[in-house]
Write a protein that binds this DNA or RNA. Structure first.
Length: 492
RNA sequence: GGUCGCGUGGCCGAGUGGCUAGGCAGUGGUCUGCAAAACCAUCUACAGCGGUUCGAAUCCGCUCGCGACCUCCA
């Protein structure tokens, strides 16, 4: 393999270029991803982001890096609007349902974990919560004030963007000029406390009716949304760490402000590589809660949604997402999901076939090493899973041909193939076998008896009986396949 | 309005200067009692116009269409 293709390259939002990945302290890698705000069910767009970063996490580990992956839970401070005057999302929901805010947080955190588990997303190394880090956030605000980048008004603390922008490039992540940003700011009510239109809250004094509140040097109140990520990433990954990720809709405000806060506090660029995932779309439009076109995971799994013909399994959906690059929009449709379902089954059954394969010759009539190189080349090129999958499908044709005795494979190549498919498909892509594995003695014994009876019927050309057995088993979800020398079965 | 991005064959979706992406669907064949699966072959492309180049889906310009952000959103 070329040395080039061995190196992992990452598209960095900061530079807008693909850069060779060089961790600060190899083999350690610090990665922070903005997690969910747990005030309602996760929708599928969120899931796409977490699945994308799960693959990135898995691949980095596969390459031998020791990754500390921090993904937060936002359980306070996320307001309804960015005017810093709206209600806290959690508190609002709590009021609506007459529950403690922490009951809301608990319910949707549990639900979130359950969905992540269904998608076979690995838990992060650390999953810190905003409410668990109020002290860290207060300390950070103190420093920012000391450094002169924040001011206090009526018990609330605001970040001074214009002051910051005098010495720093505020728009370095979103590529916009300060004047343009200011020119495009809408006049919003409730902003009278802010000096500049781009200033944002670090600490917000709680109104009397606000139920989520903590004491601070400035007021009894709560932290601003952007602050938690800066405080927690600094605490667990240091003032400067390797990778920060999230959905691309976080670029213009959340991540831009995160950088500003961190720099204002620690005087250093906090992140080397920014990775942003693109949106999931429905009929070409961004899937979002406010547009009402979002799917909940369980609606997708069960098919219980007006836009869906049927349900699709978590692994089908995961595979579907991996067939597109994380940085492209991905459009949701029944046709696309159906194709993905079939493709996923083709991949999985090829692995079952591969597991049973025996070396058939001293040589292989397929370049297995080249296949392996191409798969890694693809993944090293900014985690290009669609290309890697395409390569795996090239290999599947070979695997099936060997099984059909139309091609040969050497022992060494067979080993390489098995290792490649297992490590990429299961370890890196995080896919798993969904077909029910029931290898109990009883079932296997029963199936052998049934297949033997049917075999006799077939030898006697009693097609009526043999077809009846096959049809009735199919109704139970057991699929029989007659090949030349044997009949195999699978449970679906 | 400002900033940015996109437009690929029936559908999804890679690819950024010259070599078949891939999946699903279709067509023909092999295999098969049939079915399924599999294998082989094969069809449908690069929004439009102009430019650069020996050569462009790929670079540049214009036009048209779509989207994202600028308001909470992964």
């Amino acid at each position: 393999m070329e040395k080039n293709s061995r190196q992992l390259k990452i598209k960095n939002t900061l530079s807008r270029k693909k850069e060779v990945f060089e961790p600060i302290n190899p083999p350690f890698v610090g990665m922070y991803v903005c997690g969910p705000t747990v005030y309602s069910d996760v929708h599928l767009g969120n899931c796409r982001t977490f699945i994308s970063f799960d693959v990135i996490f898995r691949y980095l580990k596969h390459l031998g890096y020791k990754v500390r992956y921090v993904r937060n839970i936002t359980d306070a401070g996320h307001l309804e609007s960015d005017a810093d005057s709206g209600e806290d999302k959690i508190a609002k929901k709590a009021k609506l349902e007459q529950l403690e805010p922490m009951e809301i947080v608990q319910r949707y955190t549990v639900d979130f974990h359950k969905v992540m588990d269904q998608f076979n997303v690995l838990p992060p190394s650390i999953e810190p919560t905003a409410t668990g880090h109020i002290i860290e956030q207060i300390e950070m605000i103190k420093k920012i004030i000391e450094n002169g980048y924040a001011y206090v008004v009526n018990g609330s603390v605001y970040f001074d963007v214009e002051k910051y922008a005098q010495e720093n490039d505020y728009g370095e992540l979103n590529g916009r000029k300060l004047e343009d940003l200011i020119a495009n700011t809408r006049e919003l009510g409730g902003q009278d406390e802010k000096r500049g239109p781009l200033d944002f809250a670090l600490w917000i004094k709680a109104k009397p009716e606000h139920i989520m509140r903590w004491p601070s040097p400035w007021s009894v109140g709560f932290p601003g949304w952007h602050l938690e990520c800066s405080a927690m990433s600094t605490k667990y990954l240091g003032e400067k760490f390797d990778i920060h990720g999230g959905g691309m809709d976080l670029i213009p405000t959340h991540h831009t402000n995160e950088i500003a806060q961190s720099r204002a506090c620690n005087h250093t660029e906090p992140v080397n590589y920014w990775i942003h995932t693109n949106m999931l779309t429905v009929n070409g439009q961004k899937m979002s809660k406010s547009l009402g076109n979002s799917f909940l995971p369980h609606e997708l799994f069960t098919g219980n949604h007006p836009l869906l013909d049927k349900g699709y399994s978590p692994m089908t959906v995961r595979f579907f997402m991996l067939q597109a690059h994380y940085s492209s929009t991905l459009d949701f449709s029944n046709d696309a999901l159906n194709s993905a379902e079939k493709g996923y089954h083709r991949l999985m059954s090829a692995i079952v076939t591969l597991n049973k394969l025996q070396p058939s010759s001293e040589t292989s009539n397929f370049n297995v090493q080249e296949l392996k190189d191409k798969v890694y080349e693809a993944l090293n090129d900014d985690f290009n899973t669609p290309i890697a999958i395409a390569q795996l499908f090239e290999g599947i044709r070979f695997i099936n041909s060997v099984a059909d005795k139309k091609a040969t494979v050497s022992e060494k190549d067979l080993d390489t193939l098995k290792t490649l498919y297992h490590s990429i498909v299961f370890d890196v892509f995080g896919l798993k076998e969904e077909i029910l594995e029931d290898n109990s003695e009883l079932i296997n014994g029963l199936m052998k008896i049934i297949i033997d009876i049917r075999l006799k019927a077939r030898k006697n050309k009693d097609w009526e009986t043999s077809d009846a057995i096959r049809d009735q088993l199919k109704e139970l979800g057991i699929i029989l396949k007659d090949s030349i020398d044997e009949t195999t079965w699978t449970i679906q």
